[in-house]
């Protein structure tokens, strides 16, 4: 689905990614773990084309095409979705209007007819209940005044509606209570269809109790230093990232 080859990227004048290699397999859940400052969020930003990140080397191949020079909206239209760690608030942009605009942009890109407001509301209402979201959240301004948990649920709502092919979840579990974590995880698990790929960026193992990963990648100092199966989580919890470094040495 996506192949990242020897990716090097700067934020400002600092090199953060220093030759990162990663392959996201179709239908698989990849978890990225690593200490603070390892480059996890930079990786997610590099994939979606964030303006903070300057790619200085390597490549990101998605569905057989390099995307490093592609505009962010075109990456999204081709099926790449990032659930943000800190979703931005946009006063004055109605949540439902925003979602419909985004969905219709994608439908238009895929050669489908755009949905009117009534058709769109029918689709959205089906998702709201499952995520435990209040109906008034769709009529409010985008993320404005939302709690941390509400913002994360709203990210998942967008994911469910846009039905992307590669889903990047950047610390989706941060700031969530147990109920919210369960609702968000159920939303994510609904999207598993054996074809979509997931990249779950997290500091903690608890989200991985709900979203079962196929692979664990340890990212440190701008590179993937180890890839293993889900059993690696327990080792990391018990021994920390230093043990992995020692093992490599």
């Amino acid at each position: 689905m996506m192949k990242i080859e020897n990716l090097k990227a700067d934020i400002g004048t600092k090199e953060i990614l220093k030759g990162l290699d990663l392959t996201l397999e179709e239908g698989k859940v990849h978890a990225i773990m690593g200490p603070n400052g390892a480059g996890k969020s930079t990786l997610s930003k590099a994939i979606v084309g964030h303006y903070d990140v300057k790619i200085t080397g390597g490549n990101i191949i998605y569905k057989g095409q390099s995307i490093v020079d592609m505009e962010p909206e075109n990456r999204a239209l081709k099926g790449i979705f990032l659930s943000f760690q800190n979703p931005v608030e946009i006063p004055g942009v109605n949540n439902a209007y925003f979602l419909r605009t985004a969905l219709n942009a994608k439908r238009k890109h895929n050669g489908l007819a755009e949905l009117n407001a009534a058709e769109f509301l029918r689709i959205m209402k089906g998702h709201l209940e499952g995520l435990g979201m209040k109906a008034d959240m769709i009529s409010r301004s985008l993320n404005e005044g939302f709690s941390g948990g509400e913002k994360k649920r709203n990210e998942i709502l967008q994911m469910l509606i846009l039905e992307p092919d590669v889903i990047i979840l950047d610390e989706i579990d941060s700031g969530l209570d147990i109920d919210a974590l369960r609702a968000v995880s159920e939303g994510i698990n609904k999207m598993k269809d054996g074809k979509r790929s997931f990249l779950v960026i997290t500091h903690y193992s608890r989200i991985l109790d709900y979203i079962k990963p196929d692979y664990i990648h340890v990212l440190k100092n701008g590179r993937i230093i180890k890839t293993a199966g889900p059993e690696l989580v327990a080792k990391l919890e018990a021994e920390g990232y230093e043990s992995i470094e020692e093992e490599i040495r």
């Binding site: 909206e73 925003f98 985004a102």
Partner: peptide, 15 residues
């Protein structure tokens, strides 16, 4: 606001 602009674009909305 570039953050707001990017957020919208990251959902497939043109610049």
């Amino acid at each position: 606001d570039p953050k707001q602009l990017f957020y919208l674009r990251s959902r497939g909305i043109s610049q």
